[in-house]
């Protein structure tokens, strides 16, 4: 049987190549895979496409990957005024940005995970983010075609895993993590605690183990 438990964050991300696309969970300081992000900083992987709600807060969360200039392209809903390293590089034309409405970012990833190639939605119709997107009127409303969004890797944070990779989350640290787990070719999760299979209540498992490829136990890093 495939062994999913890794000994360290560095081992868990050792094969991430330059140019990889990576989804990063987290929102509002909660649910960020900070140990995996730090490992990526140590590894020095470059030319990354980062898919995340925002672009860090100062040196925190994704901020350090911009500080070290490892990211060349971003897909985000709200880069954030405190993402100073990203903002400087964006102003200088060193990093590309695709702005996506937050719920549509979720749905594009959900579509990818669910094997749906594209969908029509009224979000952003008539605005600059819909420019160059195919439009259709449905139920009398202008709608735009949105493509599924996948990635090579998802880096996510959960509270507990079992040895099979089933996951439970803690409070609002759930946010984007369960969605991203379904949308990437390889999903890597850091957790506070790993328990034997059967150690989690099947009624409360939020991410079933089929979506999880690698698990590493690490103390929650706040930034």
């Amino acid at each position: 049987m495939k062994q999913k438990i890794y000994n360290s964050a560095d081992d868990a991300i050792a094969d991430v190549p330059d140019g990889a696309s990576i989804m990063f969970g987290g929102f509002g300081g909660a649910g960020f895979p900070n140990n995996l992000i730090q490992a990526l900083l140590r590894k020095g992987t470059r030319d990354l496409t980062a898919i995340s709600n925002n672009c860090g807060t100062g040196d925190g969360e994704l901020g350090i990957l911009f500080k070290s200039k490892q990211v060349k392209r971003v897909i985000a809903s709200f880069p954030g005024p405190k993402s100073n390293y990203f903002q400087d590089q964006f102003a200088a034309g060193e990093v590309e940005l695709e702005l996506v409405p937050q719920g549509i970012l979720c749905e594009r990833m959900r579509a990818q995970g669910a094997g749906i190639y594209a969908f029509f939605s009224p979000v952003g119709a008539g605005t600059e983010i819909a420019a160059r997107k195919e439009e259709r009127v449905l139920n009398g409303k202008r709608c735009v075609l949105e493509a599924a969004l996948g990635a090579d890797f998802a880096f996510i944070k959960a509270y507990r895993a079992d040895t099979l990779g089933n996951l439970v989350y803690r409070k609002a640290a759930r946010n984007f993590n369960p969605i991203m787990a379904t949308a990437a070719a390889t999903t890597i999760v850091e957790v506070d605690e790993i328990v034997p299979a059967g150690g989690l209540d099947p009624e409360v498992i939020a991410t079933p183990f089929v979506f999880v490829d690698r698990v590493v136990q690490a103390k929650t890093l706040r930034s």
Partner: peptide
């Protein structure tokens, strides 16, 4: 700056 949409367009729609 880059601007940011967040959830505003989903809510508006």
């Amino acid at each position: 700056g880059s601007g940011g949409i967040g959830g505003a367009m989903d809510i508006a729609a």
